[in-house]
């Protein structure tokens, strides 16, 4: 059922590392709200393609790292990432067969859920993100999804499991 030889561990680690770097890369002031949710995108992609390798636990761990980098409440990004990874894991059999634009819609919905969870927790600890700009990154993330799929395109070669 699994293909131990064919799982691209190197690519997975590299993509997670690059997603971390892109998440803290300094950007001009006007564009801060447009920064795509790199880590969420990469996690969603790998959960869709290789749910047994990149599972909810991996998503949760990367969330903890994001919390440490951002100085947010510990567990906040972890919970949000684990939640969307969980939903993606439930749907991955269908989503991976969707055409790109359709899976982009699903990704948009999941990223929105991700941002909602973080927003609510931020609000509970006293600092809700009350700018309209908070939602902009959902759009940029959706726009990036097809490109991300193309770059990490191992879907066909590693996808077949049954």
């Amino acid at each position: 059922m699994t293909h131990p030889r064919s799982i691209p561990y190197g690519l997975i680690l590299l993509s997670l590392f690059v997603a971390l770097l892109l998440g803290i890369l300094p950007m001009p002031l006007w564009s801060v709200w447009y920064r795509p949710e790199w880590m969420a995108l990469v996690i969603l992609y790998w959960v869709m393609v290789l749910p047994e390798t990149v599972n909810i636990g991996v998503a949760w761990l990367m969330g903890i790292v994001l919390d440490a980098l951002n100085g947010t409440l510990l567990g906040e990004h972890a919970l949000a990432l684990a939640a969307i990874a969980f939903i993606m894991d439930k749907w991955q059999r269908q989503v991976r067969l969707f055409p790109v634009w359709q899976s982009a819609v699903i990704v948009g919905v999941l990223i929105a859920i991700y941002k909602l969870i973080i927003g609510v927790i931020q609000g509970l600890v006293g600092q809700p993100p009350d700018s309209v700009g908070y939602a902009f990154s959902i759009g940029t993330s959706v726009l990036l999804w097809p490109w991300l799929q193309a770059v990490l395109a191992v879907r066909e070669s590693y996808g077949a499991q049954e």
């Binding site: 909810i56 510990l74 906040e76 972890a78």
Partner: peptide
């Protein structure tokens, strides 16, 4: 096999959900 694939994430998510909540309360 099928059962495992679909029940493991459920269980794992509940554990991680609880763990996140614990860490967040602790971190407060």
């Amino acid at each position: 096999m099928l059962f495992q694939r679909h029940s493991a994430p459920n269980f794992r998510f509940i554990i991680l959900f609880a763990l996140s909540l614990c860490i967040m309360f602790y971190d407060q």
